[in-house]
Simulated assay, not measured.
Amino acid sequence: MLVENIPNIFIPNSKSLPDLLIHDFRMTNDNVKSKVNLQMHMFSFLQIGKKQVHFAETSVAVDKTQSILTTKGNCLWTELLDTENSYYCKLFFFSEKVLKDFLKKHSSFSEEAQQENPFFIIENDDFISAFINSLSAIGNDQLQQNEALTKLKFEEILLYLSGKYGSAFIAFLQSLIKEKDSSFREVVERHVYSNLKVEEIAFLCNMSLSTFKRHFKEEFNASPGRWLMDKRLEKAKILIEQRDVKASDVYLEIGYNNLSNFSTAFKNKFGISPKEVS
């Protein structure tokens, strides 16, 4: 699967990324776990549909009642259509430079960067709706040509959200200009029970599949496919034993997409089917 460099693909003729960029993103087909190299921090003001994002550290899902602010870096995007068979969100990209300018201008924003998640969830309200409508009324072309106006709109939304969410949002903004470093083992262990494939976890680690496999062997002394399968099946056995539940109740929880495949793998490992666990 190709990696989409965003927002570069939205401005194909540009030699460099602007500090601020607004783009209307629409789809008429579901998009499942596409590999994205997000090169700027981004507001995603979701209007129609659902969105899920997998990061190295965690994952998050939002619907049209919410918007999301995400940090730059490698991630996996899933975008699902609404009942109207459409998907629409207004994207607002910004560089660390304009964020630093904003934080310097509003020097009272001095919260410590303790936010650990690579995203911040925003509950849509009347102001958010009015803000999105104002961007649409001005038009993306006009905003791209008028840097001062776009910067004003950027400051407007940050000031509003800082007032709405207080120190939690300010801490998140501060965290966006801090260097983040998750260890290889931490990233892998966070996704042990997800439904991500080995190559998708490798992408979140910013590694090629071959490099990931080599690092994995050095770190865990096993191949990633076998190690992940064993961990997931062992947890499934514990869940079935402790909760007295059926295989159909746990296979999705521990990272399998197919009940039949899970049951076969379970029997191959333990010599008994999930139904025979007492």
Rank of each mutant, 00 (worst) to 15 (best):
K33T: 05
S34H: 04
S59N: 15
A61H: 07
K50E: 11
Q47R: 14
L46M: 03
Q52S: 15
G49F: 01
A61R: 09
F55H: 06
S59Q: 15
M40C: 14
G49L: 04
L46P: 02
I48D: 13
L38H: 04
V53A: 02
H54L: 00
L38I: 07
Q52R: 15
Q39W: 00
G49A: 01
H54A: 06
K33A: 14
M40L: 15
A56N: 06
L46W: 12
F55V: 03
F55W: 02
F55Q: 02
V36G: 01
Q52T: 15
S44H: 04
V60T: 08
T58I: 05
E57K: 13
L38K: 12
K35I: 00
V62K: 08
I48W: 05
S34Q: 10
K50Q: 10
L46V: 08
A61T: 15
T58P: 09
V36C: 07
K35R: 14
A61D: 05
I48Y: 01
Q39H: 00
M42G: 02
H41I: 06
L38E: 12
M42I: 05
F45S: 03
K35N: 09
K51N: 03
L38R: 08
Q39D: 05
V62A: 05
N37Q: 10
K35V: 00
K35G: 02
Q47C: 05
I48C: 02
S59R: 12
K33P: 07
H54C: 08
K51H: 04
T58S: 15
L38F: 11
G49H: 01
Q47F: 03
Q52I: 12
L38W: 11
Q52C: 12
M42V: 08
F55N: 03
L46F: 10
S34M: 08
S59T: 06
K51T: 11
S59K: 13
K51W: 01
F45M: 14
Q39M: 11
K51I: 05
F55Y: 10
A61Y: 08
T58D: 15
M42Q: 13
H41P: 06
V62F: 11
A61M: 14
A56W: 04
K35D: 05
G49Q: 02
E57Q: 13
A61N: 13
M42S: 13
L46I: 08
H54T: 04
V60P: 00
